[in-house]
Design a protein around this nucleic acid. Structure first.
Lengths: 219, 219
DNA sequence: TCACTTTATGAACCATGGTTCATATTTAAT
DNA sequence: ATTAAATATGAACCATGGTTCATAAAGTGA
């Protein structure tokens, strides 16, 4: 008797738990679906051109539901931008910090970034279009948030170049110039790949970029 | 008698002419004032963020007057973008085509462009922000117009590089890659100059860019 | 099945801002 | 000074689209 009751409440507890967890999971999935949809629409239309209606349609949900998950269009956009940036920084660092050799580290970073871009086309269209480094009225705080992250990225680059200069691998130019040059070179090819239908593999340009950066194009 | 009448109509005719010309001049000035104002506001707020109200205020004119000169916000934006692009292309070509030596021509172009950017800060903020190469819903035709001009610019670059490759000045890489690399390198420094308060002279970076492009940063 | 909580829905609300147009002002000619 | 033409003005109009919220639907426990 006692046993049976115990068993029952046990099962009850567990079933509540299980259901709770499923609900959690479903909620999460829905959230993700919204984010993916928003990503797609923002990429296609830009921030201003995107409408909540279209995002809702893309997510196969109603407008109201979007607002149950996010406080508004701005928040949706911010979350996409910031979370992706942080996630990718994390991944890149994990991937490159173990590499001792500076040249190899640089190459690996470029290669890895190319992979990320190929796998996250929509996000990078948003990111490249964003240009929070220029003042951008509708999202004051976001501007700063994004700029800060871009700054941090450049600093990471600078560190690599400083180390490289010390070790005599690079010419003793100002590290911020090196970082700017490297960033610009990469950006150009990344951007071209995004604007064209991404038909060629981005990774195929990695060595070109690296070569030009290291040795220039003069003969 | 006859003389006097003749004289009178003569003077009359001339005064009509003179007045006509003054009016023309004033109209032109007003048009330019509107364009300058719009340039400033578009640069500060971006296309979507800019309002006709603010442009009117900046131009010290009423909203309606803006519409006497331009058919709307889109047209205003288009005119700014397209006319500047054409004008600058013209100027750059004039400046560089006489230069026979390929390296010198490239250097001169970069130098001259830097000068243009320093003198047209607002316009270049608009241009760099525009990114018509990515699809941009609100201005279908404009997208194509701008893209076409960008394409043309890259082609001009490519021609230079093709010539350089043939003459053995550059490594035999695909000319479109060279153009992309050069463009990216320049863009990075230009953009940085625009986002920072433009406190350092942009021209001071010209040789850095050229050096990195030609010889790379490796030691 | 029933009461109750949670979540989804989308029509209605409302602010913004591009555009228009009736009116006022300025200019030009007599 | 008067009239007519040209130009400037900005309040009102209207479309768009972000946001809200009363209602419906779905889920949950008894």
């Amino acid at each position: 008797m006692v046993h049976k009751v115990n068993n029952d409440t046990d099962i009850n507890k567990r079933s509540v738990d299980v259901i709770q967890r499923r609900k959690e999971r479903e909620k999460n999935q829905r959230r993700k679906k919204i984010l993916k949809a928003a990503e797609k629409v923002f990429a296609k239309r830009g921030f201003q051109g995107a409408t909540i209606q279209e995002i809702a349609l893309e997510a196969e949900l109603s407008v109201g539901t979007i607002y149950n998950f996010f406080s508004g269009k701005d928040a949706l956009y911010s979350v996409i931008l910031i979370s992706h940036l942080d996630e990718m920084r994390e991944k890149v660092l994990q991937h490159i910090t173990p590499i001792i050799n500076v040249k190899e580290r640089l190459k690996a970073m470029l290669f890895f970034q190319s992979e990320l871009i190929e796998k996250n086309r929509n996000f990078f269209i948003i990111f490249f279009r964003d240009q929070s480094r220029l003042p951008w009225a509708p999202a004051k705080d976001l501007d700063k948030e994004v700029s800060m992250r871009y700054e941090r990225f450049l600093n990471t680059l600078q560190d690599i170049f400083e180390e490289g200069i010390e070790k005599g691998i690079f010419k003793p130019l100002p590290p911020e110039d090196l970082a700017e040059a490297w960033g610009g070179l990469c950006h150009a090819f990344f951007f071209k790949w995004l604007t064209e239908k991404s038909k060629w593999p981005l990774k195929s340009k990695v060595m070109t970029i690296y070569e030009i950066f290291m040795n220039g194009v003069g003969k």
